[in-house]
Computed example of a mutant assay.
Amino acid sequence: MIPMLLKFVFPPPSSLFITAMSVIGVASLAGTGYSETRGKHLQYSKFWNVNSQKTTRNEIKLSSRTGMLMFYTPAFLAGVAAFALFPDEGFRFFLVSSALTIHYFKRVFEVLFVHKYSGGMGLDTVILISPGYLISTATIIYTQHLTRGVQEPPLDLKYLGVVLFLVGISGNFYHHYILSKLREKGGEKGYKIPQGGLFDMVICPHYLFEILGFVGISFISQTVYAFSVTIGSIFYLLGRSYATRKWYLSKFENFPKEVKALIPYVF
């Protein structure tokens, strides 16, 4: 099993920190995804205060735009800082850092200019999510730095990774744009059943393409830690998409039953 893995990943660094982060990352994201399927949601977007049993009187509530900027900006800055902190690290490192920086730049751009908002989010959600993005981004970059001077895996996946990343980020942006057009009228805050693109087949095509983007980054990186982040993210987005479809079914009597959660015809 190990020799097979070493055909397409760098040998894991002898770092207890990286090993621990790989395990913790998968476990925490998978656990959060499972919680989503059980109705315990991260409190943002349409799931703000869904099934909440507590009063919001003592909660600090932020606007969605402010909260989401706090989600993504630190990770974006970590990607930018990588170019200054680790100059001349080689082409693969450049591709990994560039992909992460572009990924979070796109998210910040969408928060400012694309997304339409209907609710808010709690500060506790921001405190939970923002460090997670920052730490995973910084750790992917640092793990890539540790591969300097290490023999490359026999199977080079970085160019396939670039293609997958570009398809993923483009598809994710396109479907976010479709969602934003559902509220073209000023002040409109209600939810509608999205249509167009892959929305006619799955209710969360933006998550599907986000997964594709993460797979692309892990292929570019070819480190165990990058793959662990991708696996954890897949588990989380599976749970989140399941919960999203369940929410639409509960809110719209005319929601088409053939529309799946994440994977056309399958799930």
Rank of each mutant, 00 (worst) to 15 (best):
P87V: 02
S45R: 13
V162L: 07
L182W: 13
V150I: 13
E184S: 13
Q151P: 12
H175F: 01
F47N: 02
Y142L: 03
L134V: 00
E152D: 14
G168F: 05
D156P: 15
L164M: 14
L198N: 14
R92I: 01
R245E: 05
L134S: 04
H115S: 10
K158M: 12
L16M: 12
S250E: 09
K116N: 03
T37A: 07
V96Y: 09
S218L: 04
S98G: 13
L95C: 07
L238K: 12
L238W: 14
V114T: 13
F105R: 03
I127L: 11
V167I: 15
L182C: 10
K260L: 06
E36N: 10
L212F: 05
G171A: 12
S22V: 01
S22R: 00
V202C: 01
I135E: 04
E184A: 14
A261L: 04
P13Y: 03
V266C: 07
R107S: 01
S250F: 00
Y34M: 06
S15W: 09
A84S: 15
G122E: 11
A261G: 12
E210S: 10
L146P: 07
S130C: 04
G196F: 02
T244W: 10
A82K: 00
T230F: 06
S52Q: 12
S130P: 04
G122M: 14
K257I: 02
N51E: 12
M68I: 10
T101N: 00
P12D: 04
Y117N: 00
V111C: 09
A226F: 02
R245S: 07
D156E: 13
P12Y: 03
P131S: 02
D156C: 08
P256H: 02
L238M: 13
L5F: 12
P12M: 05
V266Q: 04
Y225M: 05
F76A: 07
V259L: 08
D124F: 10
L69G: 13
S233K: 09
Y207Q: 08
I24E: 01
F219E: 06
A78N: 06
K106S: 00
P87D: 00
P74F: 03
P194I: 01
F8M: 04
S180G: 13
M1W: 15
I211L: 06
K116C: 03
I2G: 14
V229A: 10
M4N: 14
V111Q: 06
A82H: 01
K185R: 10
L249Y: 11
K181Q: 14
I60T: 15
E188W: 15
L237N: 07
V266P: 05
T137I: 02
A84T: 11
I141R: 10
H41Y: 09
G122N: 14
F10G: 07
G186C: 02
P11G: 08
M201K: 14
Y72W: 08
F267N: 09
H145Y: 15
I263N: 11
